[in-house]
């Protein structure tokens, strides 16, 4: 992470944490404006923040992590040029899913280490450990996928990567939300406990800007049309230097 991005994260993290899921537009928007967040992807020459897609990933992921109640990514994408809105928002939702999964995993791990049953923390039970390990893998995959899409967006055309990232993130929602609730027991199902802010958003974001069927059809027909012998060469050419 470079210095600008670290600074951006250090700004956004406490702000989003404070605003949280119940953020009101009256309170949030002036603060976003002050930090220049809606202009994140507008070039500096045009008075914007001049950020790239990895900067956007940082902000969108944190918006997901804190289940930010305002759709900040939509405000950012609205002002971004040279990209189809549907694609950019699919990327944004993938990044938010990645953040929210990490947050839900953090809550789950914290909870099972604290909650005692049968004389020991739930986290000592192998069945609980194995479920959380599976969850951690899914959260990791969603995060890597969002990162891969951001890197591709910085290189240029990224339709394949965005499709793959949104699809992979969508799929992670299923296991992530299931395990997060399961290990929390009944408390995770209450309004007073914070988990639902994350899981209900996760279910929402899975549907928005392309569900699993939408992206798998789109990706599948593109891959099939290119043919079996092009799959691997295409995949590697997307990241190799000569093709950047």
């Amino acid at each position: 992470m470079n210095d600008t991005r670290r600074m951006l994260a250090e700004m956004a993290d406490p702000l989003f944490a404070e605003l949280g899921p119940d953020a009101s537009e009256e309170r949030a928007l002036p603060q976003f404006e002050e930090l220049g967040l809606p202009l994140l992807l507008v070039p500096e020459a045009e008075g914007g923040f001049g950020g790239d897609w990895l900067d956007a990933l940082t902000v969108f992921r944190l918006a997901g992590y804190h289940a930010l109640g305002i759709d900040l990514p939509a405000l950012v994408v609205e002002r971004a040029e040279s990209i189809e809105r549907e694609l950019a928002m699919a990327f944004a939702r993938a990044a938010q899913i990645a953040g929210a999964l990490d947050a839900a995993l953090g809550l789950a791990v914290g909870y099972v280490n604290e909650r005692q049953q049968f004389g020991r923390p739930l986290g000592k039970f192998q069945a609980v450990q194995q479920s959380l390990a599976t969850f951690a893998c899914e959260a990791a995959a969603a995060n890597c996928a969002a990162m891969g899409a951001a890197q591709a967006l910085n290189r240029g055309a990224a339709e394949f990567e965005i499709a793959a990232a949104k699809l992979r993130a969508n799929r992670a929602v299923e296991i992530g939300t299931t395990v997060a609730h399961q290990v929390h027991g009944a408390i995770g199902f209450t309004q007073e406990y914070a988990l639902h802010h994350l899981t209900r958003r996760l279910w929402q974001w899975r549907s928005e800007y392309g569900n699993d069927a939408h992206w798998s059809r789109r990706l599948g027909s593109a891959v099939t049309a290119r043919g079996a012998d092009r799959f691997w060469p295409d995949l590697t050419a997307r990241t190799d230097p000569a093709c950047r």
């Binding site: 990162m147 793959a164 992979r168 992206w215 798998s216 990706l219 027909s221 891959v223 099939t224 995949l235």
Partner: peptide, 28 residues
């Protein structure tokens, strides 16, 4: 992928898409 190219079955194309997304992610 080769088979899906001749079978024109949307279910196979969906499966191709899902497995391609996973391959891309795992490679990263």
């Amino acid at each position: 992928v080769r088979h899906a190219g001749t079978a024109s079955d949307p279910a196979l194309e969906e499966l191709v898409g899902r497995l391609a997304a996973e391959a891309w992610t795992l490679r990263l």
